[in-house]
């Protein structure tokens, strides 16, 4: 019968972790390629509507965003649960949109100014009254190229 040696101390062989950096780097590159930098931190919560005829927005630097939705939990007390507009990092009124767009446009290069696109990221439950106000403001600011942000519809 084999002798069972119990008292002898056995050391665990060291795990070879030399390929760990490679694996992590691979993950890193994967995430770097499939994601894009976050534009702002959202102060409003929204789920964009669904559609099928989508076009991808080219030239991210020429796109400005208008977020429309209900304030997130932490801003509920201050701003209530009504639909609000967010420009860049702050809440805004409809009357401020025109100024914002004009300022943003004049900060761009002159050759790019005509290419500016405004993307409206609005919650699918928003009432059209708000959207119509925004559209009128954009028209006054001569930002006529717009884009209604939406996600691909998978089923009806």
């Amino acid at each position: 019968m084999a002798k069972i040696r119990r008292n002898e101390k056995k050391e665990m062989p060291a795990l070879n972790t030399s390929s760990l950096p490679d694996i992590i780097f691979m993950l890193l590159f994967f995430f770097m390629t499939v994601t894009s930098m976050k534009e702002v931190s959202y102060k409003v919560r929204f789920t964009v509507p669904q559609a099928t005829e989508l076009t991808k927005m080219e030239k991210k630097s020429l796109v400005r965003y208008i977020y429309v939705g209900t304030p997130t939990e932490e801003f509920r007390k201050q701003y209530g649960a009504e639909t609000r507009i967010q420009l860049d990092d702050a809440f805004a009124e409809v009357s401020e949109i025109e100024n914002y767009i004009v300022n943003e446009r004049s900060a761009m290069q002159e050759s790019d100014q005509g290419q500016m696109t405004v993307s409206i990221k609005a919650d699918s439950n928003t009432r059209m009254g708000v959207i119509a106000d925004i559209k009128q403001a954009l028209r006054r600011a001569y930002a006529l190229k717009i884009n209604y942000a939406a996600t691909q519809r998978t089923s009806y």
């Binding site: 930098m37 005829e53 991210k60 884009n147």
Partner: peptide, 26 residues
Amino acid sequence: SFLLLIFFLVTTSMDVSQGLARRLPA
């Protein structure tokens, strides 16, 4: 590399911007 990975995970967003392009009248 873990540090870098976590940095990118935090600062980026997955969603690609796409939408319905329209043109407003002047």
